[in-house]
Computed example of a mutant assay.
Amino acid sequence: MKATYFMGHETFEVRECPIPKAKPGTVVVKNYACGVCGTDVHIYHGEKGSAAVNPPVVLGHEYSGVVTEVGEGVKGLKIGDHVTIDPNIYCGECEYCRNGKKQMCRHMEAVGVTMNGGFEEYSIVPAAQALLLDPNVPLEYGAMSEPLACCLHGIDRAEIKVGDIVCVVGGGAIGLLLVQLARLAGAAKVVLSEPNEARRKVAKELGADLCINPLEDGYYEKFLAFAGGDGADVIIECAGNHAAVESAFKFARRGATILLFSVPKVEATYEVPLFDVYQKELTIKGTFVNPDTHLRAVELINSGRIQIAPIITHTFTLDELPEAIAMQMSAEAIKVIVKA
């Protein structure tokens, strides 16, 4: 089989490897589609992932495929099943796992980060990490389960109340998923702030009530007029740059919650407007990975309640992984998928 190994800083190597054999408690998956995540981009440039990366390793943690072999003791999965992979594996023993905060696990492993993942033709994974997809759902959609699961954890953290005004800052794949989830959570109005016209257009198709360009004159006044003159109740920042964080604070009304969803550079900092936090009584939250939300993501995708097709814009092969990463970094793409 073909596997694309990450060898370290901005280097991949395509190798021919034997197809793995199932071990007790595992399944072998014929990988079909794997999304290029912002975390993959960070790792490619030598930055941190969700867990320590030790090359050589096959990256790719947003993927789906078909079960080709079932190991001894596995229940609930059979050959031919369509599955999506929940990459994050928790130790279950540290204080965070035992206190219901498994995403903070001190010993977390992750398929496609610390062990071989989706950027290869076949993978072997613990059976517990493989979740059933409806066979009628395109496997490309299944590859979006992991980012959707992360977004669900973010939505849970944001605590949107029915009738809230929600502003999403950044209209990439994550932002477009969050626009849809905010509506499902009961938001009365959903605003997207995004400079890219193509992404604003897709956001409107996916249910955003107002899309604003933060680079245009009068965008803030337009936002305030739509939001009722005071701002948003919940602001979700998912662009990962200084300007986006700054605008999140600007869009916040009194008593608002600001969720910093994006994966920033390790050294990134932002000077918090402390008086605004004090006077507006702001709540600032972070969000990390997808604890106990992957099954909910699969259910949403299986149900068709979340639109995926407009978000996937480009497809590449395993041989084209550097090009896929470059495209994911460009303004042209929303979501890039690699087909195994």
Rank of each mutant, 00 (worst) to 15 (best):
H42V: 03
H42Y: 02
H42T: 01
I43D: 05
Y44R: 06
G46M: 00
G46C: 00
K48F: 10
K48I: 11
G49Q: 12
G49K: 00
G49S: 04
S50D: 07
S50N: 12
S50W: 04
A51Q: 06
A51W: 00
A51T: 15
V53I: 13
V53P: 08
V53C: 02
N54A: 10
N54F: 05
P55C: 07
P55F: 08
P56Q: 13
P56R: 14
P56M: 09
L59M: 12
L59A: 07
G60S: 05
G60P: 10
G60R: 03
H61F: 05
H61E: 13
E62W: 02
E62A: 03
S64G: 07
S64F: 05
G65V: 02
V66F: 05
V66Y: 05
V66Q: 13
V67L: 04
T68K: 08
T68P: 03
T68Q: 09
E69L: 01
E69N: 01
E69V: 00
E69T: 01
E69M: 01
V70Y: 01
V70E: 06
V70H: 05
G71D: 07
G71H: 02
G71E: 04
E72D: 15
G73I: 12
I79D: 14
G80Y: 08
G80R: 04
D81K: 07
H82Y: 13
H82E: 14
T84L: 07
T84F: 00
T84G: 15
D86L: 09
P87Q: 04
N88L: 03
I89N: 10
I89S: 11
I89V: 15
Y90D: 07
G92F: 04
E93M: 10
C94N: 08
C94I: 08
C94F: 03
N99H: 07
G100V: 03
G100S: 07
K101V: 04
K102W: 09
K102Q: 14
Q103N: 14
Q103I: 05
M104R: 13
C105N: 11
H107N: 15
H107T: 12
M108R: 12
E109Y: 00
E109W: 00
A110E: 13
A110N: 04
V111G: 06
V111Y: 01
G112Y: 01
G112I: 08
G112F: 01
V113G: 05
T114G: 12
M115Q: 14
M115F: 05
N116Y: 06
N116P: 10
N116W: 04
G118A: 07
F119P: 01
E120K: 11
Y122S: 09
Y122C: 02
Y122R: 09
S123T: 14
S123E: 08
I124M: 15
I124E: 15
A127T: 13
A127M: 05
Q129M: 14
L131P: 00
L131R: 10
L131C: 05
L132F: 01
L132P: 10
L132M: 12
D134A: 01
D134G: 09
P135M: 07
P135A: 06
N136H: 14
N136C: 03
N136R: 13
V137L: 14
V137T: 12
P138C: 04
P138S: 08
L139N: 04
L139I: 02
L139Q: 05
E140N: 00
E140I: 10
Y141E: 14
G142L: 07
A143T: 07
A143K: 04
A143G: 10
A143R: 04
M144L: 15
M144Y: 06
M144N: 08
